[in-house]
């Protein structure tokens, strides 16, 4: 029986989230895991951090949900919430598309940024949302990420960025591409200020986001089996004219090749981040 296999995992304050929006992936009472094909009870999956209780597949989640899982209840203060694109290249149909997505996802862009606490520790956090144009980075995403990095510098706080992205946003052309340089140079300043940046790569993190802030963390974490790469798998297959081996560009592959520090399951993410934050606190050595 399916239900037998469901591990009961600490529900914590997860179930208090009533705000299940269209952006969350599950509808109806039952859902089929696209990895192991088990039929799962939706609420159990939800209470299990949206991870398949049978095979451990980490389903994609919204920025709102992620913040709820990571940031202490009631401490998140959102910044630049209403920032929206001005369609810098006057690309036809783009504004309409953005408006429809805002309506559908109830967020204004592909990243949420703000201040919050993790077990009482102050951080700046940016969380991308794959439901909004596949988490693509245009001017607003670049600007909000950069503002968040600058907020961290100004307030002398660590910053955590959860990445999920299909890459640079086509509709804003070179303006989008330039956000890679903009976010990267802001991180250079953060480095000079001696502040911590933890980058967390979730499924999928590709293109211009991989080739900028996602790859520049002091510590880089990833969720299990997350697809992480610069070029997309299809582009690579077309280029090299062969099928990619199983597991290529997955988190475990990157760990093996030395590009991430650690793979962390979603249920352990908050505690892991808290440990890292504590290890970077200065000036409280009494016994050494």
């Amino acid at each position: 029986m399916v239900i037998d296999k469901i591990r009961k995992i600490n529900k914590s304050d997860e179930s208090t989230e009533k705000n299940v929006k269209a952006s969350d992936m599950l509808v109806g009472k039952w859902v089929k895991c696209d990895n192991c094909k088990e039929i799962l009870y939706k609420e159990e999956v939800h209470n299990n951090f949206s991870v398949c209780p049978n095979c451990g597949k980490h389903f994609r989640i919204s920025a709102r949900r992620r913040i709820h899982q990571i940031i202490d209840e009631g401490t998140f203060i959102e910044t630049n919430e209403n920032m929206t694109t001005k369609n810098p290249l006057n690309f036809e149909g783009y504004e309409k598309k953005i408006e429809a997505l805002k309506e559908k996802t109830q967020i204004n862009e592909a990243v949420k940024t703000g201040f919050g606490k993790i077990n009482g520790e102050d951080v700046v956090i940016a969380v991308m949302d794959g439901n909004f144009m596949m988490g693509s980075m245009g001017s607003v995403v670049g600007e909000k990420i950069t503002c968040a990095i600058e907020d961290a510098i100004e307030k002398k706080l660590p910053i955590i960025i959860f990445c999920v992205s299909g890459g640079a946003r086509m509709q804003e052309g070179l303006i989008s591409l330039m956000q890679m340089a903009k976010t990267s140079e802001a991180l250079a300043k953060l480095n000079e200020a001696g502040l911590l940046y933890v980058s967390v790569l979730t499924d999928p993190t590709t293109g211009g986001v991989t080739a900028s802030f996602a790859s520049l963390g002091d510590i880089i974490l990833a969720e299990p089996n997350a697809l992480i790469g610069f070029a997309g798998p299809r582009v690579i297959e077309q280029t090299v004219k062969q099928k990619l081996p199983e597991g290529f560009q997955r988190a475990e592959f990157l760990l093996e090749h030395g590009f991430i520090d650690k793979i962390v399951e979603r249920k352990d993410m908050k505690e892991t981040l808290y440990k890292i934050l504590k290890l970077h606190k200065k000036g409280e050595t009494k016994n050494v």
Binding site: M180, N191, T210, A211, S212, L216, F230, H257
Partner: peptide, 14 residues
């Protein structure tokens, strides 16, 4: 990809 194309580009810009 195995040798970190994304990382190489990101670090260069930074």
């Amino acid at each position: 990809e195995e040798r970190g194309q994304g990382e190489a580009i990101a670090r260069s810009m930074m």
